[in-house]
Design a protein around this nucleic acid. Structure first.
Lengths: 226, 226
DNA sequence: CTCGCACGAAGTGTCGACACATTATCGTGG
DNA sequence: CCACGATAATGTGTCGACACTTCGTGCGAG
């Protein structure tokens, strides 16, 4: 499944074969896809029954979900899927904008010409998706593009933190891209970005990358989130 | 103890009264202060004996330490205090520089005049410490200053993430500040920063804030870390 | 004397059980 | 008929136990 892209930088932190991580991944996808709605209760006892294990690994999985901000665990109370408040969305976008600005800046100084060319190929895919109005395809190719950028920044810590933010963002993606005209706008930004990479213009790349993220926030704000 | 400043933004995430969090805090301080050296083995069995509890809460504490990057937990193998590689230090500083740039930028738009004046008071303390050559005092007042800045950014997520990075940074602080002339340099940067705040000059504040962090990295690199 | 294997010691991941806290149910009084 | 309090049901945090794996030690073959 394409969802595996979301965990790319998290894998290896905890053995991906471990039982807790498998449970975490399963639940993370469900939350992020909207099948488990905010406020929905995820108590360890029931999950243990569902996965036919004891509560210990489930508990660990819940802690992982908490660290990714997908679940809230109040002490002595049942854990539940974390709510998505507009304020928090804005906070996350601000961080993400700053960090992707950094990615672009680092990338300009560290990526080879061929690597930058490879980014251009992602750009072609995005353009095609936008032309055909394939919102879903656009989204996933965009994730691929961003992952590729993060990798080229040659900063593993940065990659890991962005991946964590990406999980959160996935939760409200449908709000961000489904607006008319949004895709074409976005694809134009991407083009400017790739050109800045090719020109090795670090400040411009950083600025464009950041504004690209912030435009996504603007789009969400206009839909009027609950 | 002053160390409590380090956990300011982490408290509340997990009940600070919980047993696992208490163990986490205890161990985090020991690692961060250098009393538990990189590579030192921290197995849950021994810790359980030392804290006179079962392994379950200890295990949870170790997971918290792992999430802060202070401990590595290889599957089926004993956990150990994570090593401090120069490469990783650079990665963290890059992220920190970017995020503190963001803090400064947001702060300019969101803090009140009186709040900015309060930052100036921290600045006075730093100046005095620098004049008197009180490296330790300077460090802690600096932490206070940065925490205050983060709070004024009015972005809780950002605050939390910076606090996490701060824990890591504490591990090599002695390398960063003990160089001759470093304090005076740093204090001059702080002054420029506070002035930019007073002038409500967001781009300048962001640039100064970031360069302030990066100067710290430069200082560490020159000492030649193992 | 060195290398490698086997055996024992110790640690990890998981489990079921327990006391306590929280939550839901239901009967009773107003 | 609703509010409220006792009580039952369910969940959390913690514990000790177990099988399996990893680590350490020493013995024996070469």
């Amino acid at each position: 499944m394409r969802q595996e892209l979301l965990f790319s930088a998290l894998r290896g932190v905890e053995g991906s074969d471990s039982l807790p991580f498998a449970i975490f991944q399963e639940l993370a996808v469900q939350i992020v896809e909207g099948r488990l709605l905010p406020g929905h209760e995820v108590n360890s006892a029931e999950l243990a029954r569902r996965f036919t294990t004891s509560r210990t690994p489930v508990r660990e999985a819940l802690l992982l979900l908490e660290r990714e901000g997908l679940v809230v665990i109040p002490p002595r109370r049942r854990p539940f899927v974390s709510p998505v408040a507009l304020g928090q969305v804005r906070e996350i976008y601000e961080i993400r904008g700053s960090l992707y600005g950094l990615v672009s800046e680092l990338l300009v100084g560290r990526a080879t010409d061929t690597e930058i060319k490879a980014l251009g190929q992602w750009q072609d895919l995005l353009e095609r998706d936008a032309r055909e109005g394939d919102v879903d395809g656009y989204f996933w190719h965009n994730v691929g593009f961003r992952n590729a950028e993060a990798r080229l920044s040659r900063n593993g810590e940065l990659q890991r933190r962005l991946s964590s933010l990406g999980l959160q963002m996935h939760r409200f993606r449908h709000l961000s891209l489904s607006l008319p005209g949004r895709l074409l706008n976005s694809v134009a930004d991407h083009e400017r970005l790739v050109r800045a990479y090719a020109d090795r213009d670090a400040p411009l790349a950083a600025a464009v990358s950041r504004s690209l993220v912030m435009r996504g926030l603007r789009a969400i704000e206009n839909t009027g989130l609950s």
